[in-house]
Design a binder for these strands. Structure first.
Lengths: 107, 107
DNA sequence: AGCATCGTACGACACCTATCGAACAATGTG
DNA sequence: CACATTGTTCGATAGGTGTCGTACGATGCT
């Protein structure tokens, strides 16, 4: 496969798209878990987030986060290393990530 | 008609729902206009936001914002007075409104 | 009363989305 | 090489969403 996906550049990150990516309890849970653990792979993230979703669904959610510019994904063997693009998000939507992570998610 | 709609209490405001309400360029534009002008009615808001949308569509968007707990709506004659629930939002999702309003919306 | 104005509600349409299972590709391990 | 592991992709399906036009209701004005 390729070495990386297409992820939006910092300038391409758009507020509505980011908000849309975060407007889902499952993705918020994934983001929360990711924030607590720093970086992780898909499988571990599924467990950490406490979500009961199929592999394909989690893969879909991570894709949405990635394509919105929220997360960065690297290929590591058969696994993926997912992390939050904190600096890029701070530049594109100042304060947003902190506000979202700060709120305890009462869905 | 009645005197007010059902709007969620401060405790009922949920992060995913608020994010979902904000995850639309039209609603962000309405919110931006509302923030600049303080409070307004539906018609004026449509003009101020620079949106080219039908009455029913704007009405729909304002309903989404209202039901998410983002805005408060009062009946004033045949018109409506719409305002942002700044305090409630700050209590439910600290920093979120400021972060969203702060970002210049490049949709 | 009659009419205009402001906004909501409804039905319709096209489109997007969350979810799943199954099939597939890539890599690591015996 | 055969097999297990990790994710992605595809097809399907059910349900949500943005948009519009039209019809309606409430209020104000003449």
């Amino acid at each position: 496969m390729q070495d990386e996906w297409h992820e939006p550049t910092r300038e391409e990150i758009s507020l509505p798209t980011v908000l849309g990516a975060l407007a889902d309890p499952a993705r918020l849970a994934l983001l929360q878990a990711l924030h607590e653990v720093g970086e992780s792979n898909c499988g571990a993230l599924t467990a950490l987030s406490g979500l009961d979703l199929s592999k394909s669904t989690v893969s879909h959610h991570l894709k949405v986060l990635r394509e919105a510019g929220v997360t960065h994904t690297q290929f590591v063997g058969t696994s993926r290393r997912v992390s939050i693009r904190q600096d890029d998000l701070e530049a594109a939507c100042p304060g947003l990530l902190h506000a979202v992570i700060g709120s305890h998610v009462h869905a």
